[in-house]
Computed example of a mutant assay.
Amino acid sequence: MFDIGFWELIVIAILGLIVLGPERLPGALRALQRTVKSVREFSSNVQNELKHELRIKELHEHLQQAEQLDMDKLPPELQRSVAELKAAAQQVQRPYAPKHDDAAVTKKDDSDKHE
Rank of each mutant, 00 (worst) to 15 (best):
E58G: 07
L25C: 02
M71Y: 04
L74H: 00
I4K: 06
Q93T: 08
Q93F: 06
G5T: 04
Q90M: 12
H60D: 10
D102V: 10
L20D: 01
K51N: 15
V11T: 04
R94W: 12
A66P: 00
S43E: 15
E49R: 10
L54C: 08
D70C: 08
S38H: 11
D112L: 09
G27E: 05
K99Q: 07
D3C: 08
D109M: 13
G27S: 05
Q65H: 09
W7Q: 13
I56G: 04
G21D: 01
D72V: 02
G27N: 06
E84K: 10
I56Q: 14
K99N: 12
S81N: 06
V11K: 15
Q79M: 13
A103I: 03
A89I: 14
A31M: 10
D70F: 01
G16Y: 00
F6Y: 09
K51R: 15
I12M: 09
R94F: 14
A31K: 10
V19L: 09
V82L: 13
E41G: 03
L15S: 08
R40P: 02
A66W: 00
Q33P: 01
I56V: 13
L15R: 10
F2G: 07
L78R: 01
L78P: 00
R24M: 03
I14Y: 04
H114I: 13
E41T: 12
V92Y: 14
L9S: 10
V11D: 14
E23R: 12
T35M: 13
S81E: 01
A66S: 07
V36E: 13
V19W: 07
Y96R: 10
R80V: 03
A103E: 15
E23W: 04
A89Q: 12
D112I: 05
A87E: 07
E67Q: 15
L54F: 06
A83S: 11
Q64K: 14
Q65N: 08
H62I: 06
V105H: 08
P75K: 04
E23K: 08
K113V: 03
L32M: 08
L50M: 10
H60T: 14
P75S: 09
Q79C: 11
Q65W: 05
A89T: 12
D101V: 08
I18V: 14
F42T: 11
K37I: 02
A66C: 03
E77D: 12
S81G: 15
H52Q: 15
A31H: 05
N45G: 07
D102M: 04
R55Q: 13
D112K: 11
T106L: 12
L78Q: 09
R40Y: 07
D3I: 04
G16M: 03
S38R: 11
Q68P: 01
Q65Y: 05
T35Q: 12
N45R: 15
P75F: 02
D112V: 06
K73W: 05
E67V: 11
E49M: 12
D3V: 05
Y96P: 02
G16D: 05
Y96E: 05
Q79Y: 02
G16T: 04
V46F: 00
V19A: 06
S111L: 11
G5N: 15
D109E: 14
A87P: 00
S111I: 13
D110F: 09
N45L: 15
L78M: 11
E41D: 15
M1E: 13
L17N: 03
S111H: 07
K73N: 14
L15C: 04
V92N: 07
V19N: 02
S43F: 11
E41S: 13
R94I: 02
D102Y: 06
L17K: 14
